[in-house]
Write a protein that binds this DNA or RNA. Structure first.
Length: 184
DNA sequence: TATACGATCACCT
DNA sequence: GGTGATCGTATAC
């Protein structure tokens, strides 16, 4: 599933405008045994979306300031999800203006003028840019008109996909070495 | 109730 | 290479 999502479009409607961003990087988090997966803590208020039906958005806050967006990939009771780690903009009627406000500290500008390529290439960054937050947690990405995923025309060959270890999960024992990160 | 820390990022040396 | 920002969640008391 993490490989099947590569190349597809992550779509977001903001104020009546639609942004499409091609998914270029994903990671898989697999069930209650995978110590890197939040579901390894069991069914809690936080993880209940992952234990629910597939196709729903599991969105959580990390480090007190960023959100991460995942898609639940397996049937109810089987808590697996794919984290969307990176995207590339395809069509955009909104953030090309470069007027996405952010402020990490008072020193920084209220408007982010950096190119989009550097604003969508990370799980926290793409959520900030696409205004994905906890309010969208649980939405069905097959049905939602706010946040959804579309197939792309292009065929992704397995030779185009690089694999690697997942990022930021050094605490997860042997699970940290699983090659469950995938990049186009 | 209190505390430790994280599926990150930007900035610093 | 390292660190601070900042808060929800899990875990310990």
């Amino acid at each position: 599933m993490p490989r099947q999502l590569l190349g597809k479009y992550l779509c977001r409607r903001i104020s009546g405008r639609t942004i499409r961003a091609q998914i270029t990087e994903t990671e898989a988090y697999c069930g209650t045994k995978d110590l890197a997966c939040h579901a390894s803590k069991g069914l809690t208020p936080r993880t209940k979306i992952m234990f629910g039906p597939p196709g729903h958005a599991y969105i959580y806050m990390i480090y007190g300031m960023y959100y991460c967006f995942n898609v639940v990939t397996r049937e109810e009771g089987c808590p697996e999800a794919v984290l969307i780690r990176g995207t590339k903009v395809v069509s955009d009627q909104w953030s090309m203006t470069g007027k996405n406000k952010y402020s990490l500290s008072s020193k920084k500008p209220a408007i982010d003028y950096r190119p989009l390529s550097t604003r969508l290439n990370g799980p926290g960054k793409l959520c900030r840019e696409l205004k994905i937050d906890k309010k969208l947690s649980g939405v069905d990405v097959c049905k939602s008109r706010e946040l959804w995923i579309e197939d792309s025309q292009e065929e992704i060959k397995s030779s185009q996909i690089k694999k690697g270890k997942r990022i930021g999960v050094d605490y997860a024992g042997k699970w940290k070495n699983k090659l469950w990160r995938f990049l186009l």
